[in-house]
Amino acid sequence: MPSNVEIKAKVSDLTQFAQKAAELSQSEGTIIRQHDTFFSCSQGRLKLRDFMNGSGQLIFYERPDTDGPKLSRYSITPTSDPQSLQVVLSEALGVKGEVKKERRLFLIGQTRVHLDTVEGLGHYMELEVVMRPEQTVAEGQQVAEDLMEKLGVSKESLVTGAYMDLLLKEHKEI
């Protein structure tokens, strides 16, 4: 199963973070709109990502809910009919919730840097260090920590869990 080392953090200054990511990636990034539906499942997380253009991905992943760099294992299957698949999976498994976001993707070395505006939550960043077969988790964590420093991401801004978890927590507190 492929894996990456991930971190997620709250972003206080969207413009400043975007400028640093653009400098490091030597690009303005790619805008991607995503509508994720999370389904109930007994282990890990299962989500259907709809790119709002007739394409999507069914994604299963497992990772610990801790802040800082952590290993995530995942499986991805593309789909050309996310709406129909969403109906079937909703009926079969039940829906845990939905996350709608606009993502700006930057590529820096072996790392996917996401600058996300999440409906109902605000601005966040994610680093996904795509692990090479010969790399150790510690090496992936070091790549993530080095990039955090270059992007000005503080340890205090790190968050645990998925956006779905944060949205469910917000909803419970209302």
Results as ranks from 00 to 15, higher is better:
Gly94Arg: 02
Val95Trp: 05
Lys96Thr: 13
Lys96Tyr: 04
Lys96Arg: 11
Gly97Met: 00
Gly97Ile: 03
Val99Ala: 12
Lys100His: 12
Lys100Cys: 10
Lys100Leu: 11
Lys101His: 01
Lys101Leu: 13
Glu102Ala: 07
Glu102Asn: 09
Arg103Asn: 13
Leu105Arg: 11
Leu105Gln: 11
Leu105Ser: 08
Leu107Trp: 11
Leu107Arg: 15
Ile108Glu: 05
Gln110Leu: 06
Gln110Trp: 06
Thr111Gly: 00
Arg112Glu: 15
Arg112Lys: 14
Arg112Cys: 03
Arg112Asp: 11
Val113Ser: 02
Val113Asn: 01
Leu115Ser: 09
Leu115His: 11
Leu115Asn: 06
Leu115Arg: 03
Asp116Cys: 01
Asp116Met: 08
Thr117Ile: 12
Val118Asp: 04
Val118His: 00
Glu119Ile: 03
Glu119His: 01
Gly120Ile: 07
Gly120Ser: 04
Gly120Gln: 06
Leu121Pro: 07
Leu121Trp: 03
Leu121Asp: 02
Gly122Val: 00
Gly122Ser: 06
Gly122Asp: 00
Gly122Pro: 01
His123Cys: 14
His123Arg: 10
His123Pro: 06
Met125Leu: 14
Met125Asp: 02
Met125Trp: 04
Glu126Asp: 09
Leu127Gly: 05
Val130Met: 15
Val130Arg: 12
Val130Tyr: 09
Val130Ser: 14
Val130Asn: 10
Arg132Pro: 05
Arg132Tyr: 14
Glu134Ser: 14
Glu134Cys: 01
Thr136Cys: 04
Thr136Gln: 04
Thr136Ala: 10
Val137His: 09
Ala138Gly: 09
Ala138Asn: 13
Glu139His: 06
Glu139Cys: 02
Gly140Trp: 00
Gly140Asn: 11
Gln141His: 02
Gln142Phe: 02
Gln142Glu: 13
Val143His: 13
Ala144Pro: 04
Leu147Glu: 05
Glu149Phe: 08
Glu149Ser: 14
Glu149Tyr: 09
Glu149Ala: 14
Lys150Trp: 00
Leu151Gly: 08
Leu151Val: 08
Gly152Met: 05
Gly152Arg: 07
Gly152Gln: 08
Gly152Pro: 03
Ser154Val: 07
Lys155Trp: 08
Lys155Ile: 05
Lys155Cys: 08
Lys155Asp: 08
Glu156Asn: 14
Ala162His: 09
Ala162Pro: 04
Tyr163Gly: 01
Tyr163Ala: 04
Met164Arg: 10
Met164Gly: 14
Met164Tyr: 06
Leu166Gln: 08
Leu167Pro: 02
Leu168Tyr: 10
Lys169Ser: 15
Glu170Gln: 15
Glu170Asp: 15
His171Trp: 13
His171Ala: 15
